[in-house]
Design a protein around this nucleic acid. Structure first.
Lengths: 138, 138
DNA sequence: CAGTATCCTCCAAGATACTG
DNA sequence: CAGTATCTTGGAGGATACTG
């Protein structure tokens, strides 16, 4: 959606620039639960609040609500309320949200694939850190 | 690298599970500066400390050091010290690091592409929030 | 079921000063 | 140049209790 007002006044859209609004998107994604929510909804199907809650092992109600609200605010998902008893609320990614969702799913898949190598590297690093001192500084 | 010890004892590698080590990878990526560092190094070329510092507008020395150290620990980049005067230290992604780097670059590119739509959605949301009350709760 | 309301803790991140 | 050391603080995130 191309609104008229110009985001580029201050020097262009560049995530490396301090005040670029894209930084706020990165900070949203960097939320502790944001990536998992996006991946959980990535296939485009609507999911109910407590179903999400169960899927995201360890999340609290507060954080799930807050994360969903932030994603809704940025237009990445929609919230549909069905005024039944008991209430039913479904969350579903927008086309925009499915775009990032797909990318984020790539990240989580990568993590699962390479976790062995990472854990091993971590162990090696901590091992070396124990004896070998660092060159330059410290 | 396939080490012998089994990460799957506790129930499988699944980022949705509370104690899955992949969660620590997500938390690394979720650091405020991690994605930008990865993207800045994504092409595989070695970059010096202060060059990175200048590129990542707004980062402090402490955070750059901390972020680089964490990435080094996880085997995503290497640190090469050339004992010249003045000292020269170069950071460069490993093959592993270039893997995520590429994925993360997709995220930042996506952010830059869709920032207009996101900013617009955000404005609409805040507009509505001002008058219209929410159904269910509050 | 799908939230809201409070209280509380802790640490990521910033600011500043110093150094081999 | 490439760091380390120290102090400080906002707010993310957790725990718990309550509700339409």
């Amino acid at each position: 959606m191309d609104t008229g007002f110009d985001l580029r006044k201050y020097g262009g859209v560049d995530v490396f620039l301090r005040d670029c609004p894209t930084r706020t998107v990165l900070e949203l994604i960097a939320g502790k639960w944001t990536m998992l929510v996006l991946v959980a909804l990535e296939d485009g199907r609507p999911v109910r609040f407590n179903a999400l809650r169960r899927r995201l092992d360890g999340i609290t109600q507060k954080m799930l609500t807050r994360t969903l609200r932030a994603l809704e605010r940025d237009g990445l998902l929609t919230r549909a309320v069905y005024p039944t008893v008991p209430p039913r609320v479904e969350y579903r990614l927008t086309a925009l949200g499915m775009g990032v969702g797909r990318l984020i799913a790539g990240i989580t898949a990568w993590s699962e694939e390479h976790i062995d190598a990472i854990v091993a590297a971590r162990a090696r690093f901590d091992e070396r850190a124990a004896d070998e001192p660092r060159p330059v500084g410290d």
